[in-house]
C-alpha cells in the first residue's frame, strides 16, 4: 500500500520517532454505519447513508465533500461523541461506545481557552487525563517549537493571529501522542497563504508522529496535498462516491502542486463533483 511504502521510506532514514508513532497508530474500521436524526420540527433526516471504510494504522485519510454531505457527522461518529444509528465502528479492536479518549480532535474553531497561556492550553489534555505533567511539559514545548511558537508559550490566545491559534490547537491535540487524530476543517477559517503554510506544518508534525489521521476538508487541493487516500463524498444523504489513492512521495513540498500527478488527482476529484452536480460550468 501507499501508506506502507511511506513508512518503509521513513524507516529507511533514521527516524525513531516516526517508528514509535507508527506503532502506536490504530486502525479504524467503519462498518455499515449510518446516522439519522430528528429535527426540531420532528422530521427524520438521514445525515449519513451506509458507510463502509477501513483505515489502516498510520494512514492519513482526507474526506472531501460539499457542505451537508455528513463528513463532519462521520468524524463525530468515529470520536464516539455522537452515537451511530446503525453499524459499528472499531478503533483498533475496540468498538466505539461513547467518547473515545485516545483521539486528538481539532475543530474549525480553535477553541483555545482565553484564560490560559498558550503553553497551558496545550497542556489541557494532560491535566484532564491526569497524565504525568513533567514529561509532557517538554513534549508540549517541542511541539510548539516545531510550529514556530516557542516565543509565544507565555502569551494569551488573544495576542495570537488566527493561524497561530490553530497551530496551538493542533499542538494541544498532539501533546498526548494520540493514536488517532480527527480534524474537522481545521484550516477552513484561515486565509489561503496561511492555509498552505499550515498544510506544510501539519505534514511535518505528522511525519514525526505518524498517527492515523482523519482530516475533513472541502478543499480538493488540501486533501490531495495531505492525504494518503482521499475519500470523496456526495450529499443528501452523505455517502462515499469514490476513494482516490495519492501516490506522491513524502515529504511533499508546496511545489508538488504543479506536479502532473497532483494536478491529475485534483482534476479527477473535480470531475466527480461536476458529475454529482455540485460543481457546474456556465
Amino acid at each position: 500500500m501507499i501508506q506502507g511504502a511511506g513508512k518503509v521510506a521513513a524507516d529507511g532514514s533514521p527516524a525513531p520517532a516516526a517508528q514509535r508513532g507508527g506503532d502506536r497508530a490504530v486502525s479504524v474500521n467503519i462498518q455499515g454505519v449510518s446516522k439519522s436524526y430528528r429535527t426540531l420540527r420532528g422530521e427524520d433526516v438521514q445525515a449519513l447513508d451506509t458507510v463502509d471504510l477501513a483505515i489502516e494504522p498510520g494512514e492519513f485519510i482526507a474526506i472531501v465533500g460539499p457542505s451537508g454531505c455528513g463528513k463532519s457527522t462521520l468524524m463525530m461518529l468515529v470520536s464516539g461523541l455522537i452515537p451511530a444509528t446503525t453499524g459499528t465502528i472499531l478503533v483498533g479492536d475496540t468498538p466505539v461506545n461513547g467518547p473515545i479518549t485516545s483521539a486528538g480532535i481539532v475543530f474549525q474553531r480553535d477553541l483555545l481557552l482565553d484564560w490560559r497561556t498558550v503553553l497551558d492550553n496545550v497542556l489541557l489534555p494532560v491535566e484532564i487525563r491526569k497524565l504525568d505533567p513533567a514529561s509532557h511539559l517538554q513534549k508540549a514545548k517541542d511541539l510548539l517549537a516545531s510550529v514556530g511558537l516557542s516565543e509565544f508559550e507565555d502569551r494569551y490566545p488573544a495576542e495570537l493571529s488566527g493561524g497561530m491559534r490553530q497551530r496551538v490547537s493542533i499542538c494541544r491535540a498532539l501533546v498526548q501522542d494520540p493514536d488517532l487524530l480527527l480534524m474537522d476543517e481545521p484550516f477552513g477559517a484561515l486565509d489561503a497563504l496561511t492555509r498552505e503554510q499550515m498544510n506544510q506544518d501539519l505534514q511535518r508534525v505528522w511525519l514525526r508522529s505518524r498517527n492515523t489521521v482523519v482530516f475533513i476538508t472541502h478543499s480538493i487541493d488540501e486533501a490531495v496535498y495531505l492525504a494518503d487516500r482521499v475519500i470523496v463524498m456526495s450529499s443528501r444523504p452523505g455517502k462515499i462516491a469514490d476513494i482516490i489513492k495519492v501516490d506522491l512521495p513524502r515529504p511533499r513540498r508546496s511545489t508538488v502542486r504543479s506536479d502532473k500527478r497532483f494536478i491529475d488527482h485534483v482534476e479527477h476529484i473535480r470531475q466527480h463533483f461536476m458529475a454529482l452536480g455540485i460543481l457546474k460550468d456556465d
Partner: peptide
C-alpha cells in the same frame, strides 16, 4: 461555552 469545546473536553475524558 461552545458545544465543540464541551465535546473536546469530553473526548479528553472529562
Amino acid at each position: 461555552a461552545e458545544k465543540e469545546m464541551i465535546y473536546l473536553v469530553r473526548s479528553m475524558g472529562a
